[in-house]
Design a protein around this nucleic acid. Structure first.
Length: 656
DNA sequence: ATTAGGG
DNA sequence: CCCTAAT
């Protein structure tokens, strides 16, 4: 089994290396930089890749979509003749390649697998969810992890769900349950194992709609625009709880561990002393994996409500390069561009030459014979490399042997008064959130879950000539321990436009952990509870496609609201400039998407804004009063700084 | 990990 | 917002 072209840097906790200047400028010109890798995969990468496929695929090939009957699928699925299958698929791939060549060249990690019975199961979902909606959705997964998101970006683009991956009707099983005094419908979406998804031709599904949002931060979801769309959520936040609207969908969690009552976020009024966070109660989670892929093993240890997590992330990223260099244990440290006429010399090898099923591609000369050695293995013969390079695009074809995915159950609760349409949306959002969210892939070998992500396939016993391949299976599962990323929801940060109380007051008043659970939004409060499977910590899957194979993604732009500006001004007035960490802790401790660097930057621009004429200002106008305060505070603290400097200077002189 | 400053 | 150098 060979996977060609890694998704990108970032597996196994690698931090994304700094983007070279050239690439950065190119990115700013909305250009793509392609990093194509040939990479041998370890199990971890396999997981990530498989999950990544699901997440990234934009559509099914026409054939796949059309092939919606179980029978036809089964036919394909049960085709055990590898060669025959390959032959059968090849024309499709070729064709697809021609159509989408430019994308396929670099879009995704590609799977060339000979596993005859890879077993992926997936839901059948309603097709044609055309009522594109931008609805915040929330998914509760295990470990008290809640993911929020809006489905809009996906819906408004080549919605993968709509267009391809889930071309089938949802199997819905409804039952009545009572929740908080209200009778609601609980929709249980079953995932019959015997229903296969028509994604057996993922090889042809590599064309993903280019949603910018999706590209950059698919997960994010609730961004300022959303806030504006759902203004009322602000009020709820202000109240410190999330009253459920009558027409709302109340979230129900099936997780026994979930205990979302009575959790109180520790007040962080004292910036110096920060009480230990409540591990189990935080439900503010980002929907999708952040751009920082985290090593799974650590995730369990992480405090889900760690207020510093975000900062660490930020920093990790900033110092990514150093970090990466220090992490020598990770197998895929060495990477080379796909087209630089050299096959990656991965430390561990699953050789490509074992791919009897894809002989036409001429893979060979790998490390197969070396076994699970950890030493670097010499790679393919030079002659082959050259061949490879020339075959680059061709090699990028996917040989997909994944027959279906099994998706965990979904539990959705909607009021009886909800319309069918809203139900559809809710279901769609739930699925979208799950798929778009921290979806993990589990790898099963002969029914046993392979937990060690760092094992190579070979070490695990998955090799081209291994009979065990017949029992290789995959499962999709919700992120068991979602990375401790906070919901990036502006509505949580500075929920109201009225002048804010002291920021530190907000900390305790506005962000009790249980609030997020009941977070509701205007119209489609699509709060979905997902009962996680006994999911294990698996690889965080990068939500990446095309552009995202670039190293790091730029964070989405989130203009400061007036409220935020006010909070910032207030904090700076008190703390001064140059203590951005304290400012952050004081006024933005819960705004996980605002780093102290952001605050510093914002202050910088505020000062600039205050100095220029109102006509020159852009964006949401900042009240002049605030700008005046900015100037005042800035002047004051600048003066203080000067004084301080003079003081220390004179002291130094005295000492000398 | 933070701060400061250029881009 | 990003990226880095310097702490």
């Amino acid at each position: 089994m060979v996977l060609l072209k890694r998704l990108d840097y970032g597996f196994n906790g690698y931090q994304v290396p700094p983007t070279p200047r050239a690439a950065r400028s190119a990115r700013r010109r909305c250009e793509f930089r392609r990093k194509d890798y040939v990479q041998k995969m370890c199990a971890f990468d396999l997981l990530a890749t498989v999950a990544g496929k699901l997440l990234l695929e934009g559509r099914c090939s026409p054939k796949s979509v059309d092939t919606s009957s179980d029978k036809e699928q089964t036919e394909v699925v049960e085709s055990s003749d590898r060669k025959g299958k390959n032959v059968e698929n090849k024309p499709l791939e070729e064709k697809s390649f021609e159509q989408d060549s430019c994308e396929r060249n670099f879009l995704f990690t590609e799977i060339v697998s000979q596993a005859p019975n890879s077993n992926f199961h997936a839901h059948k979902l309603a097709r044609g969810q055309n009522d594109a909606c931008s609805r915040p959705a929330s998914v509760i997964t295990s470990e008290s992890s809640e993911k929020f998101g809006s489905a809009e970006p996906m819906f408004n683009n080549d919605c993968k769900l709509r267009l391809g991956i889930f071309p089938h009707p949802v199997d819905v099983e409804s039952s009545i349950c009572r929740s908080e005094g209200e009778t609601k419908k609980q929709i249980k979406i079953e995932t019959p194992n015997n229903r296969n998804l028509a994604i057996n031709n993922l090889a042809d599904t590599c064309n993903v709609g280019r949603s910018d949002t999706w590209d950059r931060k698919p997960s994010t979801l609730v961004s300022s625009p959303d806030c504006q769309k759902f203004p009322f959520c602000r009020d709820q936040i202000l109240c410190g709880s999330f009253p459920v609207k009558q027409d709302g969908v109340k979230l129900v969690t099936k997780d026994d561990d979930e205990n979302y009552s009575g959790c109180t976020k520790p007040s962080t009024t004292n910036k110096a002393f920060r009480p230990p966070p409540h591990v189990g109660d935080c439900r503010t989670r980002k929907l999708l994996p952040s751009k920082y892929w985290k090593p799974t093993p650590n995730s369990k240890d992480k405090d889900p409500y760690d207020p510093h997590a975000e900062r660490r992330n930020y920093l990790n990223r900033n110092n990514s390069y150093k970090r990466k260099r220090s992490q020598r244990d990770y197998p895929f440290k060495k990477r080379k561009f796909f087209d630089c006429s050299s096959v990656s010399n991965s430390d561990e090898g699953i050789s490509s030459d074992g791919i009897s099923s894809v002989p036409e591609y001429g893979y060979g000369g790998g490390a197969l014979g070396s076994g699970p050695s950890l030493t670097t293995v010499p790679m393919a013969p030079t002659s082959l490399r050259g061949e490879r390079a020339s075959f680059q695009s061709r090699n990028s074809h996917v040989k997909l042997k994944i027959k279906s995915f099994r998706v965990p159950e979904l539990f959705i609760e909607v009021p009886e008064s909800a319309t069918i349409g809203s139900l559809k949306r809710t279901v769609m959002e739930a699925v979208t959130a799950i798929l778009g969210g921290g979806l993990h892939v589990g790898v099963l070998l002969q029914g046993k879950k392979i937990r060690d992500d760092n094992k190579t396939l070979l070490q695990t016993g998955i090799s081209h000539d291994n009979k065990k391949l017949d029992s290789l299976g995959f499962t999709l599962e919700p992120t068991p321990t979602q990375s401790p990323l906070c919901l990036e929801d502006c509505s949580f940060e500075l929920p109201c436009d009225t002048p804010q109380p002291l920021a530190s007051d907000r900390d305790s008043a506005l962000f009790p952990p249980n609030m997020s659970l009941e977070k509701t939004t205007t119209d489609s409060k699509a709060l979905v509870s997902v009962r996680p499977m006994k999911a294990e910590a698996l690889a965080m899957v990068p939500m990446r496609k095309s552009k995202q194979s670039e190293s790091a993604q730029r964070r989405i732009r989130r203009p400061f609201t007036v409220s935020e500006v006010e909070a910032l001004v207030q904090a700076v007035e008190k703390l001064g400039t140059g203590r951005w960490r304290d400012v952050k802790l004081r006024a933005f401790d819960n705004a996980k998407h605002r780093t102290y660097v952001d605050l510093k930057d914002k202050w910088k621009t505020l000062v600039h804004t205050a100095r220029i004429s109102p006509q020159q200002r852009r964006g949401e106008p900042v009240p002049q009063e605030l700008l005046d305060r900015v100037l005042t505070a800035h002047a004051f603290w600048s003066q203080q700084q000067v004084k301080q400097q003079l003081k220390s200077q004179s002291e130094t002189c005295l000492l000398l």
